[in-house]
Amino acid sequence: MDHDRYGWSALFHRPPVRWPGSARVALLVVPVLQWFPLDAPAAPYQPVGSLDAPYPDYRAYTHRDYGSRVGIFRVMAVLDRLGLRATAAVNAAIATRYPGLLDEIGGRRWEIAAYGLHMGRLHHADLSRAEEAALLDEVLGTLRHASGQLVRGWLSPGGTESPHTLDLLAERGVSYVLDWVNDELPYVLRTETGRLHALPYAHDLSDATVIWERHHSATEFAEAVIDHFTVIDREAAEAGGRMLVLLLHPWIIGQPHRIAALERALGEIRSRPGVWPATASEVLDAWAAAAETGS
């Protein structure tokens, strides 16, 4: 590799992983709760969903905010009906601005992963180590205090990291990061400071990629989710446990005209045999236990 963060191996050349109950596919649903500030800086870049009209861009600001007022509750209703507990990736600013949302998440026994401060505060090469350490203390402190959870997971706003992000996260007791989307199973990341894992999400399958960026319809999104599942489920029968990590943006999939497509897709997957609905920590712990025993 051109770096030493992980040892490289092809997915299909590893010993099989056994999930609890001999499940074939672990299903992880990851709603992201985002806040896009009205005055987010244009540099170093603007993540997907950023405001794109001249200041004050009330159009995009309020459209994204819809996710936290309305859309997330449709997503919750769907997951409740299907008996799925999610792992919510939460901007710390959400905990401060909308504390009731954290209660809704806690009441459902969803897991919380940290998702930076907000969508205007990115982790990138120009952030000094000291500055980033303080930022991570603030983000993790806020979310741990608000949720009462350990908060073992991390997702970087916009999907970028600084050269120090992984070390700083491990130092602060974080066990997994979702950012490295190069695999379909967890793997070990090397850090200076502690144990850390990559828990890749299916970036090409998220509602933001399929619907927002590629402009596919909600129906096409549902088809993509089912098709993705069908392939990895077939492979799992031969190669051992697999996982589907589906990122959802409530301001996209929680719109009235899209939510039924999500319920169709997840309902179809839920009806298949050998599916293990799990949170990120449950999957990570099962994977680590399997890796230790070599099964």
């Binding site: 009205l38 004050p56 309305v70 949302l101 809704e104």
Partner: peptide, 17 residues
Amino acid sequence: MSVSDPGLYDYSPIVDR
């Protein structure tokens, strides 16, 4: 001077009104 939050309206989850 720009602001990060325009304060246009209060937060209110649609399920609790």
